[in-house]
């Protein structure tokens, strides 16, 4: 079995990619995907720790996180549709009605 650190480093890298995606990318759907990437990196951390500690808790938590991520994706896509109906664009730079 690969040591715990490998998994932790891998999930940290995936999490960082997700964060970078949210900050850099200019399309709501890609940003949403990046957020999902962050949550799945967390899932990997939970699983790795659960295996290392020999406890089931972490594995159960992953199911909760997956459910929450699904609910969040649904709401996110609904909001994306409602915003697309108004302005025919998914570029965050065009969100100028309210100044940031």
């Amino acid at each position: 079995m690969a040591p715990l650190n490998y998994y932790l480093v891998l999930s940290a890298i995936i999490f960082a990619i997700g964060v970078a995606g949210v900050v850099i990318r200019r399309n709501f759907i890609v940003i949403l995907l990046s957020i999902e990437l962050m949550l799945n990196a967390v899932n990997l951390t939970f699983i790795a720790f659960a295996r290392y500690l020999g406890s089931m808790e972490g594995q159960v938590i992953v199911f909760f996180v997956m459910t929450v991520a699904a609910a969040e994706a649904v709401v996110g896509l609904a909001i994306i549709i409602s915003i697309f109906r108004h302005r025919r664009s998914l570029d965050p730079r065009e969100m100028q009605l309210l100044k940031w």
């Binding site: 709501f28 957020i35 962050m38 996110g76 909001i79 969100m95």
Partner: peptide, 19 residues
């Protein structure tokens, strides 16, 4: 339109913070 925009901003930042 402002409400959708506000929801989008809130959602993105909220989900980001959740991560």
């Amino acid at each position: 339109s402002q409400a959708s925009e506000a929801a989008m901003k809130y959602f993105l930042i909220g989900a980001f913070a959740t991560g």
